[in-house]
Simulated assay, not measured.
Amino acid sequence: MMKFCTKSLLLICSTLGLLCACSEKSTTEPNFQKCSDTSKIKGYQADFGGYKEGKTIPFKHSDGYLFSFAVTDRDNFIDDACQKHLNTTLESAYPIYSISLSAETATFYYNEDDKLNQTITVKFGQYIFSLRNPERLEKELALIIADGKDSLAYVRDSSYIEKMEINGVAYADVAVAKGRKYEQPYKNDYQTNTVESSAKLYYQTKKGILKIEMEDGSYIAINEEDD
């Protein structure tokens, strides 16, 4: 009887030890995918505008005066949640304008279509725009035409123009984002409440921001005619 108890006790201890070992192993091995080894974003968000630090882009105001935007900052990083970020700043010396572009994307994609869903958030003064991939907009428009239906979601969000002329230069595959503006009075940089606005931003993947129309009818636009 003593031998049976001893054997049973040893078996129980052995089993508990195995369970403890398995438990320790499971807590030390992560059950999630490792973050990317690079912070670089690829695709539409990275290609947008060909913006590189130090680059200058000629612009023209609707009042007629000429100025240039310079890419003063371009920063890549990965946050604690494994999200990739790309922040870009365009600034002009006079008149003093500043445009900030921020892109955020997941480290991993489930399929190629996910890459077409990338967006870029643009802030210009009191206005904020969400720029969707023009290639995605073109495909959505083709589906709407094929179905013979109007899409309120499409019209409300943004639109697509096959060709338009800006300051004497023709641009193809132009997307148009409808803007919103910060609720007034604008209090601080951390304010997030926005309301609808009639402002619009015209853009293209290759050239980036082409034109920004403000609510009062004035605008600034890329000026490559004499470039």
Rank of each mutant, 00 (worst) to 15 (best):
K181A: 03
S158M: 02
G168S: 11
Q191D: 15
Y154T: 03
G168A: 10
E165P: 00
T192W: 11
K178Y: 14
R180Y: 13
T192H: 07
K181S: 04
V174S: 02
V174H: 02
Y171L: 02
A153K: 01
Y182Q: 00
N188T: 15
D150C: 03
Q191P: 11
Y154V: 01
A172F: 09
Y171E: 04
E183Y: 06
D150P: 03
K181V: 05
G168W: 14
T192L: 09
Y182S: 00
A153T: 07
Y182W: 06
V155S: 11
M164T: 15
Y182D: 03
Y171M: 02
Q191S: 09
T192D: 14
Y154S: 09
L152N: 13
K181G: 02
V174W: 05
S158N: 11
D173Q: 06
E162M: 09
V155M: 09
D189M: 04
I161F: 10
D150R: 02
L152D: 15
V155W: 11
D189T: 10
N167F: 12
S151G: 01
Q191E: 15
T192Y: 12
Y190C: 07
D150W: 12
V169E: 10
V174D: 09
Y154A: 07
Y154K: 06
S158E: 06
V176Q: 03
D189G: 02
E165D: 07
